[in-house]
Structures are given as C-alpha cells and as structure tokens.
Design a protein around this nucleic acid. Structure first.
Length: 806
RNA sequence: GCCGGUGUGGUGGAAUGGCAGACGCGACGGACUCAAAAUCCGUUGGUAGCGAUACCGUGUCGGUUCAAGUCCGACCACCGGCACCA
C-alpha cells in the first residue's frame, strides 16, 4: 500500500502536543545522571515577532539537545524573555499602552511562533526579566555589588537632545543627530551609577585561557579588555610644583617626546587657569569637544584639531628640555591618565599632529625617514639621539628607561586596561528600579531584602522628564519614602537599570526558576552549572558575554555560585540576510516570517533548510527556492517508506560502509556545528537508497535516527507508522562500527609532476612504503611515465600517487 | 585608523597541504501524462575539439612545496564592530 503523501501539517502539531502532554523535555534534577546544559541567548520579544534569524541558533542547539538526550544525558534546554528595553518603552509611549501589556502580548506571540517550530525547550522554566519575581533577584544582586563597593556614582556624559530635552541612548543618535527630531545631539554631564567591571579585568582575561570559546570571541574579548604594560611618568610643569602624569608603553622613545597633549577636560587646565594666557580659547575648544562622541573624536582620518596651552611648558625628564603643551579632542579623559607625551618621529598620530601644527619631529630610532612619515616598525630598531640609551636595542632601552625613571622617583611600572567601568543607570521607565534610598542623614541606604522587589510604579507617562531625570522622578508619592534606617523623610533613587542587567544572570535562574527564597538553590546550581554550550551572536561578544561573565565571577567570589566561569563553551551563528543579500529589516522590506514557512513547507523542512543553507557561523542570504529544496529532501525520505523491506542487514558491503561512515560523519559534524555537511551526508544516503530501489528497515532506521534531531516531527511519525517500537526520541544515538568504515579497495589519483593523469583501484590498507615501492611498477602507471626517468615517488595512502619525472 | 570576518561555477556552498566544485538551488534534455504540476533518470566551471582528450581556473601579485583554495609575504575589495589602546 502506498504511503500517504508527505503533509507535515497533518502531524507536526500532533507531535508538538504529544511532547508537551508527556513533558518529554522537562528537565529534572537527577543526581547521578550526567547533565547537559544547552543555552541560547534568550530573545528580546519585539513587536515585529520572530524572524527567520532567531531559529538558526535555536535549531542548532535543539539538535545538540536532542542528540544529548539520545546519548543518555539529562538535558536542560530553557527559554525565556529579555523583555526590558527601549523599543517596548517607545511603543508604549507612542500607543499609550502599558509596557507590561506590550511585553505580555509580544511574549505570547513569540512563544506561539517558537512552539510551531518544535524546539525541545523546557517551557516550564520560562523566565521573564520584567517579572517582579525575577527582577527581585536582579535588584538583590545589584545590592551585593553595592555592599561590596563595586557599584558607585560618577559624573558621566550622556547624549542630550536640547530640543526634545531628553537623554538619548546611543541607538537613538543617528549621525550625531537626535533620531526623533534631527537636532544635533550634545553631551550633558550626569551623576550615574557605575559598576566596577575594571576590577575584574585581569580575572576576565585570565579566565579565557581555559574556556572552550571559539577563537574570534576570545580575541575580541581580549582586545576589548586591552591589557597593556608600561609605566606612568610624571612630567614637571616648568616654574610650578605641578606634575603632569602620563601613561606610556614606549618609555624607550622618551627622548623623542617633543610636546604633550592633554584631553580638553584635563583638570590641570582649570587648576592652572590663571597662568594660562589663552584660557578662554581652551574652554571654548572643550565645549566643542563635549558635543562630539568619543568615536567622532577618535576618527583617524579627520583633520587634527588642537589648541596650544599658552603660558605653560613641561619638562621632558629624559632631555631636560622644555616642551609645549597642547589640548586635543583625540585624547580622552577615560583612558590612561588623559594626557600623553607625543613622540612624532615614531607615532603616526603624533606625526600628523606635529606636521599640522609645525612642532619639532626628532628621530630616536634609526632606520626610517621621519621627514616623510612616522617610523613605527621599530621593535628591532637601535636608539639614536637618546643620551644614555644610544646604541641600545628598543626592547632593552625600554627596560633601561623604566628602571632609570623609577630610580629618579618619577615613574612607576603600570598595567593599563582599555576596559572601562560600566555605566549602569538609565533615565528610563522600562527597567529594574535601583533599590536605593537617598537619606539626608544616612546618605545612600539600600533597601532591605524583605522589601524587594521594589516594584515599578504605575505611571501615566513613560516619557523621560525634560530635566533629564527618569520618569520615575515625577511620581512624588513613589519617590518620597521614609529612610529604611532612620525613618526620616528620604527619596528613592529614580534611575533604572540597563537592559543588560537581567541578561547578566538569567542562566542561573533557569536552574531553579520558581525559587522564592533564593535566586536559585545551591543544589540546583551545583547540578546544572556551568552552561555546557552557549551559542549566540558575535555582536554580544564584548557586552553581554563579558558582562555576564563579570556578574558570575563576582557571585563566585561571594561563594554564591560554585563554578568559577558560567560558560564552558561558546559558539556563534552568522546572520541570516534577506533574499537581496542585505540585512533583514522592516525598512528594507525583506523580512521573512517563519510562520509563512511553517505553513508552506512545515517546521521540519524549515529547520533542515536553516541548517543546510550554508556555514553556520557565516552570514547567508535567504533563498525561498532553497527552502523548498529542503522540503523536497524530506519528501524523498518520506517516500522511502514505499521501498521498505523488513530485513535489517544492509544489501551490500558498500552500503554498509556508507551507513557507518555517515553515522560517524553526521555525529561529528553536529558537534563541530557543520550542520550543512551533516545534512549533505544524509542526502547522499537517501540518493544511494533510491539508486538501490529498495532498502532494509535497519538502513532506514539508521537514517531516521541521524535525521531526528533536525526533523523531529517527521522522524517520530515514520517511526510510529512503521511500528519500529517506542518513540524515536527514546532511542539511543546510533553507533558506528570501526570495522566497516572503509571498503577493501579504494580509488586513488595518479599524478605525474602534480597533474592528474589517471585513476586506479588499490587495496585500502596499503601503506605508504608498500605503495611507493609497488605502485610505480604497475603497467598502467608505467605507461604514464614511459620514456621518462622517475626521480621521486610519493604515495598518500588511499588518496594519490604522485610521480616526479624528468 | 584599529579589531574581527569574508572573497571558490549561473547561484548557496564543499574540500585533515593530496583528485577543486561534495550536497543543494537554478537551467537544459529525457521518461511518465491528453496536457500540466508533482515525481523519476540524465547533463551542467571555462575555452578548443565530433571525440578520446588538452589547456586554463578558488580576489591580485610574489614565495615555500613533489603537491597550495588551504601555508608565508605584500596588496585589493566587501561585510561587521569600535571606546584613537597613547
């Protein structure tokens, strides 16, 4: 009897219901059973709904999760919602709907969309960062930071739109202008909450050593943390007791320092204002700089701007000479000491600045032509014009100079980090309230644990206030509270936390999501943590991924989590582009909704296509035709049911070899995230089965087991149709037999001087020595080398024979 | 400017230094059909040749090697990120 045509809509919802009803994917804490924790970055539930980019990561780790279950692991594969954030807030403002309702609706939409794709999430562990039962613990962890002195206040610039009179996120600043009104964005200094991530810079760097993160992620985190070794040196300001401190990694070039540059915000300027002849000019320049972003200030191509500080000179401690002081906006107060010594002979930026302002350029390392350009490739150079360092190699000079300066008592070796502390407060509504009270007598007072969560109050308007304060500042009945310590009238902190807060620890909450006493029980954390495999986007490498490592390292130091690092392994997926090869976005009109795909080709085919379309870690344009090809492949698998014999043994040795090779390759490829080649291998199996015209149940089962993590619905359906016993998700992952991985004979290429001339069959177990001795004597090989002298012969077993002839 | 990534047929892509183009998509031809769709079977890097075959071919230019898409050096283009790494 012919099997009914492949129609996924007749069974995909059925199996989704079955898995749910039977709690097949519910993760249970079972000590003694090996656990495996798969994690994907929980989505931001935007109003636009799921697009085909989301499921790429989900499907990949769903394959791993399903494979691990078949391998006997107790798998935790959770899902949740990273739901605080700007788009929801802006939607709420525009449409006068409470952001909590917007979030609820979006989450329901997302969940329904995800469920149609058949992911093996444990939905009973869903977390939502905007749920008070969740953010209670986000607040609680913040208070731990505060208690331990890692949360502090500092003056920081925010983006400010003078027309809208609101603070803006970087996201809302487009080309230096306000996204809403187009007015030029300026900076406004605000007292902000900071988290001292820099105190963990070294630990965050060291921790990377032993983690199984893909190399680009490690490299990016290392570069972001940016450790550099050098020294701080004090330059005397001539005629004063003031010293100007700089940081340099190139003490060896100090004899070439012909001027210095300060950040326009450097405090020394105001301190010595009365000695500076052009102080007004400097203040004006500082004002202009304040309106630029750091990135604009850092732009290399732009023309160098700067102003000389007239009336002050510094003394170069190496040469003893007086050198001029300048300010320029490319020097940022936030890195190093906010001042540099300029060595124009050997630094490109300094060279250009010196040229632009006609400052002296001195060569201190021989070899370049400093008239034409800065000579920067100096690591193996020899010092000149450098007093005591003359004739030394750069590396030695560096050490010698640092020792010398230290001896003079004006320098200290110093390790500097590029990493900056984390601005942790936002003047927004839709975020976790910071649970602190400002008391005129007691100062800053944290809320007591029993008073958490501090709920977001209901408000009528979510707009930030025109003073730049959070909308919460306008709700006096919420703001005015008695001090938790002394009972005097006091005010609540009105800033909220950034969206990164909730996502910095959600993987811990998944371990024990309904706990009302702790953020998660020790037992659950000890069992499930660390995350065994975390997949996400490259764009989160230096923010979310680093922030969450920071939180975890901190909690570990407090003894609240056992694992030192949260994630054992980190991989990344590439972006899915629109059919036109451009980034998918509403404005480009090239967004593809997975619902449409489920309707047309089914969830399984969609999953197969997402995994087959190209290299997992690279950006790939979507192709509707390609997606239909995936459906065609599953259709061919489905119709194998009509070619089925009851036997278990393969019909030929070569087929048996193919199946064993496939079991090995598919398993290994899944682990290496080479899903595309794993699926290609399964397609090859199917093509082979069609060639034979009929297959055995044993061979068919092997294919279904390999395919089931990718196309779970169809594989369950066929397994049941054919009465193969039980459910396919309960079957063990297939094993291959080493003995059947190769045929007796294998075809190799025969090259003459590197060009392929013929092919021939050789025994597959022939080793290199035997091959090189015997194969050139074969008559068909001799034919190729007739009349020529063989001077060398290389045999690569099972691959090729190369004869070098004259 | 810095950091990271990517350049392979008409197209998405494959390839532990060892036969470039697996597996798809598209296209073309054939079978089935009254016809179409679906399906099945075949062909499909370029040039020359009826053909066996020959030569060329993985962004560019050099190098190492018996052998280079892969390793090394210099460069070009594109994509992503950025807080001038002092």
């Amino acid at each position: 009897m012919m099997t009914a045509p492949y129609d996924p809509s007749t069974f995909e919802p059925k199996w989704q219901q079955f898995w749910e009803d039977n709690q097949v994917f519910k993760a249970k804490l079972e000590p003694g059973k090996p656990k495996y924790y798969c994690l994907i970055e929980f989505p931001y539930p935007s109003g636009a709904g799921l697009h085909v980019g989301h499921p790429r990561s989900n499907t990949a780790l769903d394959i791993i999760a399903r494979k691990r279950r078949m391998e006997g692991h107790n798998v935790l594969y959770p899902i949740g919602w990273d739901a605080f954030g700007l788009p929801t807030e802006n939607f709420a403002i525009a449409n006068h709907i409470h952001p909590a309702k917007v979030t609820r609706d979006n989450v329901n939409h997302f969940r329904a969309q995800l469920k149609r794709l058949g992911f093996s999430f444990d939905y009973s562990r869903e977390v939502d960062t905007t749920d008070p039962a969740y953010y209670k613990w986000t607040q609680w962890i913040f208070l731990k930071f505060y208690e331990h002195g890692l949360a502090y206040k500092a003056e920081m610039p925010i983006n400010w739109c003078p027309r809208c009179k609101i603070g803006l996120a970087n996201e809302e600043v487009v080309g230096g202008a306000c996204e809403r009104c187009g007015h030029e964005v300026t900076h406004k200094v605000k007292n902000q909450w900071m988290l001292a991530i820099t105190r963990y810079a070294q630990k965050l760097l060291d921790g990377l050593e032993n983690l199984d993160f893909i190399e680009p992620v490690k490299a990016q985190q290392r570069n972001w943390i940016g450790r550099s070794e050098g020294c701080e040196v004090d330059f005397q300001i001539a005629g004063t007791d003031e010293r100007l401190r700089i940081f340099t990694t190139r003490a060896d070039t100090m004899f070439g320092a012909t001027y210095m540059v300060l950040s326009p915000e450097h405090p020394m300027i105001e301190k010595l204002a009365d000695r500076i002849h052009n102080i007004d000019e400097l203040r004006k320049y500082r004002e202009q700089a304040a309106n630029k972003s750091d990135f604009e200030r850092a732009e290399m191509q732009k023309d160098k701007t700067g102003v000389e500080i007239k009336g002050l000179m510094a003394i170069n401690p190496a040469t003893g000479q007086q050198i001029p002081l300048w300010i320029s906006d490319y020097i940022l107060m936030g890195y190093g000491t906010g001042a540099v010594m300029a060595v124009p002979g050997h630094d490109e930026r300094d060279w250009e600045f010196a040229r632009a302002f006609n400052l002296p350029i001195v060569e201190v390392v021989a070899g370049g032509d400093i008239e034409k350009e800065a000579y920067t490739d100096i690591d193996d150079g020899i010092l000149v014009n450098s007093g005591l360092l003359n004739g030394m190699k750069v590396k030695d000079a560096q050490e010698a100079m640092m020792d010398h300066l230290e001896g003079l008592g004006i320098s200290k070796r110093k390790v500097n980090f590029k990493l900056r502390d984390w601005v942790f407060s936002r003047q927004r509504y839709w975020g976790e309230p910071i649970p602190l009270v400002h008391c005129p007598d007691c100062g800053i007072v944290p809320l007591k644990e029993e008073d958490l969560p501090l709920l977001l109050p209901d408000v009528d308007s979510y707009e930030p206030t025109d003073s730049g304060e959070s909308p919460l500042a306008a709700i006096t009945e919420w703001v005015n509270v008695p001090c938790p310590t002394c009972g005097q009238p006091a005010q609540r902190e009105t800033d909220t936390m950034p969206q990164w807060a909730g996502s910095s620890w959600y993987f811990l909450r998944y371990c024990d999501p309904h706990n009302t006493e702790e953020f998660a029980s020790k037992e659950a954390l000890d069992y499930w943590m660390p995350v065994d495999w975390y997949n996400g986007g490259m764009e989160h490498t230096t923010l979310h991924l680093l922030y969450s490592r920071f939180w975890h390292l901190f909690l570990h130091d407090l003894g609240l989590v056992s694992a030192p690092e949260p994630y054992k392994k980190r991989t990344s997926h590439g972006m899915i582009l629109g059919e036109n090869g451009e980034k998918m976005s509403k404005s480009r009109g090239n967004v593809i909704n997975p619902d449409v795909l489920v309707d047309e080709i089914g969830a399984d085919a969609f999953r197969v296509y997402e995994m087959f379309m190209g290299a997992f870690d690279q950006a790939i344009p979507w192709s509707m035709a390609g997606a239909r090809g995936a459906k065609r492949f599953l259709d061919r698998v489905w119709r194998l049911q009509d070619m089925l014999d009851a036997d278990n043994q393969s019909y030929s040795d070569s087929l048996r070899v193919l199946i064993n090779q496939s079991i090995k390759k598919v398993g290994e490829d899944f682990e290496r995230m080479k899903f595309n080649t794993a699926i290609a291998q399964m397609m090859t199996m199917v093509n082979e089965y069609y060639d034979k015209g009929h297959i055995t149940a044993g061979d068919f089962k092997a294919l279904l087991l390999l395919l089931s993590p990718v196309a779970p619905h169809m594989c369950e359906e066929i397994w049941q149709n054919q009465n193969f016993g039980g459910y396919i998700h309960q079957q063990p992952w297939p094993a291959f037999d080493e003995a059947f991985l190769v045929d007796d004979q294998v075809e190799i290429a025969v090259q003459v001087n590197g060009k392929v001339r013929m092919r021939m069959m050789v025994p597959s177990d022939m080793d290199k020595q035997t091959g090189e001795k015997e194969l050139p004597n074969r008559p068909e090989v001799q034919e190729q080398t007739a009349g020529k002298q063989v001077i060398k012969c290389i045999y690569v077993p099972g691959r090729l024979l190369n004869l070098v002839v004259k």
